[in-house]
Design a protein around this nucleic acid. Structure first.
Lengths: 213, 213
DNA sequence: TGAAAATGTGATAAATCCTCACATTTGCAA
DNA sequence: TTGCAAATGTGAGGATTTATCACATTTTCA
């Protein structure tokens, strides 16, 4: 008998499976559960995915589902993990034998493309990256704000570089602005000292891009 | 039951208040609701915030709460809106009369600092920006992955620029990597054409930073 | 073969969002 | 002032969904 210790759950932790499938039968069923979840996420997003629906589509009972995935997010995470492992391998392979600047340019460029294509094509990854439905709602409004703010930058850039391609200025301004929001978001999620360094580094990078160094 | 009802265009929309407070009494009560929500978000995050708790702390019934905020996210959004309006004003003011590159440098740098400080200090904004609890769990794991990946970049950079400050290389690599993830995340959330342009622009920016032009 | 371990099941507890029918207060025209 | 319509207030309960648990079935292996 397990003593039920009312430990305060670690909010940020992803719970481990209650038990691992050790028999062939259960391994196959777990695969079916994952496949069902993957399909449902692709169709509706993980937020709208219902555990009962996953169980039904996998042809198992809700109890079996919870036997191997202790909570909802753990099944989403299990799927995400597969892809991150894949890209992880990609990355180390691509960067392993870079020897000079030219090699870096090529390897890095390919890497970014691979990432882009991977996330463009994988609904599960897209879902995990874009957050819950509630987040998406806010994000789309933030995006609109961000475009509006980027417009101010575009106006300035057009004054400073009247000959530049307007579309390119637009793209640059929008990207720089979004990178700024991402940098700040990153900075507040790490410790203060590193956050400060990251913000300074961003300012350097952004200004180099904006005023052309 | 319909299998795939394509009725999802409105999912991302933030519902408007069922009704606006027109009397003094209700305006005060709405303020109390917002204050209660703000405090609870600061304490526990919007994900853990319970509507019943908001009502209780505001000293109103749950029904009154739903009279003015049609759903949970609308009250979070109402709070977020106040801050974004504030920063919006800041931004246009700071960029309005930039005339040359030097002015841009100064204005932009100040702007970023203001953003950073604002988001560092405001729990509600931090919460909205960092997403739901479920997202935070995944995000912290993504962050760990990201650091691991940035390490590969650091290794390369150390080979290419052996004299550079290691801490600075570390910061640069981590930032560039995170910016890349943010750029891809952005790219997949806009239409394909703009996404492609943004990814290309990111590659230019990143490589300029990594190989030093 | 038989017992222990692994696995399977689904009713149901628990948590939470949100609604609704009805009560109370306020604004204002007569 | 009076009376009524509009605005506002209430909280029990409907609806949904996550997750649990006591018990049933299947597999492993000594």
């Amino acid at each position: 008998m397990d003593e039920k210790v009312p430990a305060k759950p670690d909010q940020a932790a992803i719970a481990s499976p209650r038990r691992s499938p050790s028999q062939q039968r259960s391994r196959e069923r777990v695969e079916r559960m994952l496949a069902a979840a993957s399909a449902l996420i692709a169709e509706q997003g993980s937020d709208a995915m219902r555990m009962g629906e996953v169980a039904e589509r996998a042809g198992v009972s809700i109890g079996s589902l919870y036997q191997f995935f202790p909570d909802k997010r753990s099944i989403v995470w299990a799927l995400a993990e597969r892809y991150t492992a894949e890209s992880q391998a990609c990355i180390s392979a691509a960067l392993k034998d870079v020897r000079d600047a030219e090699g870096l340019k090529q390897a890095f460029s390919e890497l970014v493309d691979i990432y882009y294509q991977l996330f463009l094509a994988e609904p599960v990854i897209r879902d995990v990256w874009s957050g819950t439905q509630a987040d998406k709602a806010l994000r789309s409004l933030e995006l609109a704000d961000s475009r509006a703010n980027a417009e101010f930058l575009v106006a300035v850039l057009k004054r400073l570089r009247p000959d530049a391609d307007p579309v390119e200025l637009e793209t640059t301004a929008f990207l720089v602005w979004q990178m700024g929001e991402a940098a700040v978001r990153l900075a507040i999620s790490v410790d203060r000292e590193e956050g400060d360094r990251l913000v300074e580094a961003y300012k350097r990078m952004a200004l180099r891009e904006l005023v052309g160094e």
